[in-house]
């Protein structure tokens, strides 16, 4: 589903290298987790895949199925089925949550040549998905993420994912800032979307999320590369011992 080969990325400003030859392959139906020390480049990877400006890809490739992601505009990547749940969801004063979501959904459908969803059907769809995530109607009426608590913002990201139904979901520290109950709701939201046609890349610092969302594969990222790949036991090892041994081993 997602094929990243030898990806080298630097900041456009100052030409500072961040990703230094990253390889990653996530198959359809799979859940992969990425763990790694602060500043190792996890968010950078997610932004580069989503198409944020300010990064220069100097080498390598990233494909979603047979689509060359790096050749597309951010909105085209979204329409092709890529979704990034932001580590820091953005507040947009003046743009209502519902207007935002409906504009996004219909823009994606239009780009794929599908008919737009009517206002009534959309309302039904969002209500149902929001209920599952315990997001109340009042919150949906407010401007995007404005005045939302940290946990509410993260749940709102998952709501967007549930409504947009992407096939490649990247979750950047969606578990940070969630209370125990919200963690369970978010995990249920993710698990409900798990199927053969969809894949997840879950960036996290904690084993706790992985208790709920059992990953198929765990990667350790350090200094812009994947330094180790294993099964769920790798996350447990990080939880117990930290990164020191893994980093030393990779040297």
């Amino acid at each position: 589903m997602l094929e990243i080969r030898n990806l080298h990325v630097e900041l456009e400003e100052g030409a500072k290298p961040i990703l230094k030859g990253l390889d990653l392959s996530v198959g359809a139906g799979q859940v992969h987790a990425i763990m790694g020390p602060n500043g190792s480049g996890k968010s950078t990877l997610s932004y580069v895949l989503a198409g944020r400006e300010g990064y220069a890809v100097t080498e390598g490739s990233a494909h979603l199925g047979d689509i060359d992601l790096l050749a597309l505009e951010p909105e085209e990547r979204a329409a092709a089925g890529l979704f990034l749940a932001f580590q820091y969801p953005v507040e947009i004063p003046g743009v209502g949550n519902m207007v935002f979501l409906r504009t996004a959904l219909n823009a994606q459908r239009k780009a794929r040549g599908e008919p737009e969803v009517s206002a009534a059907d959309f309302l039904k769809l969002v209500r149902q998905k929001a209920q599952a995530l315990r997001i109340d109607a009042e919150m949906l009426k407010r401007p995007v993420n404005v005045g939302f608590s940290g946990g509410e913002k993260k749940r709102n990201e998952i709501l967007q994912m549930a409504v947009l139904e992407p096939r490649m979901c990247i979750l950047d520290e969606t578990d940070s800032g969630l209370d125990v109950d919200a963690m369970r709701l978010v995990s249920e939201g993710v698990n409900a979307l798990r199927d053969q046609g969809r894949a997840f890349l879950v960036i996290t610092h904690y084993q706790r999320l992985l208790d709920h969302i059992a990953p198929d594969v765990v990667h350790i990222m350090a200094d812009g590369r994947i330094i180790k790949t294993g099964g769920p036991e790798l996350a447990l090892e990080v939880e117990r011992n930290g990164y020191a041994d893994l980093l030393a081993e990779a040297q």
Partner: peptide, 16 residues
């Protein structure tokens, strides 16, 4: 720019 990217990352074309 951050808000613009957020909207585009959800599939909203740049102009819209």
């Amino acid at each position: 720019e951050t808000a613009l990217f957020y909207l585009r990352s959800r599939g909203v074309p740049a102009r819209e």
